[in-house]
Every structure is written in structure tokens, then in C-alpha cells.
């Protein structure tokens, strides 16, 4: 367990705090993507964003990840969090093995043995020696999810993490996600209410 850094920015938030999003706005040209979005997220809970396409879900994620700037609004409790993510695309290093992809984000935090054992729970044995570009779509997705779970983080964002996974592997993955995010704030998006239930996630609806 990592020690939580004390929060110096907002006295109203307790230590080891959650996330408060206030009146967030973002537009691209004339198109308003986020309009006065306010959310309150607790530190150790799982939230499922149910949002039809075009409701600014990916934009919200990108702002939280620090990849976009909002036009206005405030986010409290973000600056002291270490983030991790499953992007809409897998974004793996295609020429490297799954182990090397994990190593890329974890550094020396785990032994090779630990990482390989983690991979074994999600990937077939013969995939372990192969570069990721030889993987099937589902195998890449599982590697990307595992990478997000193992990277040192306080908050994990997952943008439709279960796309391309069949039912059995999805249940497997959900089990692993629940185990590894107990102490973390997990914010994910999906189109499927069932996924949210399986994760015992609080559902947030975003609408236009």
C-alpha cells in the first residue's frame, strides 16, 4: 500500500479524498461536449458511466487524465492522485511481449515471476512469449486492462474496457478488477447495465 499524500489544496476534503467535479464545461468550436457537469466520487468506490455516444464521456476521461483542458469548471482532489487508464483503444507497445508492456508502466515494482503469474490468469500460456501484435483483439484488451490494474495508481479510468471480450473472459476480468481496485477509485464506462451490476458499481447517467 502506498501512503496517501495529505491534501493541501482543499481543506473541505478529508485526507485520502475522493474527487469533486464542479460545473465542468468543454466545447469544440460550436459543439458543446460537456455542459456544467458536476460529480462527486468517493475514493474507494466503483462508478459506472452509462453514456450514449456523443455525450462527452471520452472527453471527460481525457480531462481527468490531464490530456485536455476544460473550458471552465473545477476539479478537486485530482492533482494528488496517481492515475491509470484503459483507453478506448488498447495502446500497447505492439512489438513487445505482454510482460514487457506491463514492465513499461510498473518499472521495478514487481518481480518478473509475479507479473508472469498475473498474465497467466488472463492469457493462454503460449501467448506469453509472443509480441503483442500477434495477439487477438481480446487478448490485447486483457493485457491493456491488466496494465491499468498493475500500474501504481489511486484512481483508474476505463473507457469501455470490455469491448471485444467474450462472456467467460469478461467475468474473469471483472473478478480481477474487483480484487485489484478495492482500495481505489474506479471510473469506467460501458453500454451494458449488467457489467455495472457485476462490478457492484454505482451508475452515473450522462445525457446531452
Amino acid at each position: 500500500m502506498m501512503m496517501e499524500k495529505p491534501n493541501r489544496h482543499n481543506q473541505a476534503l478529508p485526507q485520502n479524498s475522493g474527487l469533486i467535479i464542479e460545473r465542468l464545461c468543454k466545447s469544440y468550436g460550436d459543439e458543446i461536449v460537456l455542459n456544467n457537469l458536476s460529480l462527486r466520487l468517493d475514493a474507494h468506490k466503483t462508478y459506472c458511466l452509462m453514456a450514449p455516444s456523443g455525450t462527452g464521456k471520452t472527453t471527460l476521461f481525457r480531462i481527468l487524465l490531464g490530456l485536455e483542458q476544460p473550458d471552465s469548471g473545477e476539479i478537486h482532489g485530482l492533482s494528488e492522485k496517481r492515475l491509470s487508464a484503459v483507453f478506448q483503444e488498447d495502446r500497447l507497445l505492439e512489438g513487445y511481449t505482454a510482460l514487457e508492456n506491463l514492465r513499461f508502466v510498473t518499472g521495478r515494482q514487481y518481480t518478473n515471476e509475479t507479473l508472469t503469474n498475473m498474465l497467466r490468469t488472463l492469457l493462454p500460456e503460449d501467448a506469453l512469449g509472443k509480441p503483442v501484435h500477434e495477439f487477438s483483439g481480446g487478448m490485447k484488451r486483457r493485457t491493456a486492462i491488466l496494465r491499468a490494474l498493475l500500474a501504481p495508481s489511486d484512481m483508474i479510468i476505463m473507457d469501455e474496457p470490455f469491448t471485444g471480450l467474450d462472456v467467460d473472459t469478461k467475468l474473469n476480468v471483472i473478478q480481477l478488477i474487483k480484487e485489484r481496485t478495492e482500495e481505489k477509485l474506479l471510473l469506467l464506462s460501458t453500454h451494458n447495465e449488467e457489467d455495472a451490476e457485476l462490478l457492484s458499481a454505482k451508475i452515473i447517467h450522462l445525457s446531452k
Binding site: L65, L67, S84, A85, R91, L93, E100, F104, V105
Partner: peptide, 24 residues
């Protein structure tokens, strides 16, 4: 750029980015 964003989010040190992303 998507890989660079990924490395940024995970706060991967610049040397490891150079070796695994730029070098390739």
C-alpha cells in the same frame, strides 16, 4: 501520439519512453 499519451498518463520516465517508444 496515442502511445505518448499513454506513457504520459502512466508517468513513465522519459528514458523508458525513449527506449520503448521513440527508438522503435
Amino acid at each position: 501520439p496515442k502511445l505518448l499519451e499513454m506513457a504520459r498518463v502512466f508517468q513513465v520516465p522519459i528514458w523508458r519512453r525513449a527506449m520503448s517508444i521513440y527508438r522503435v
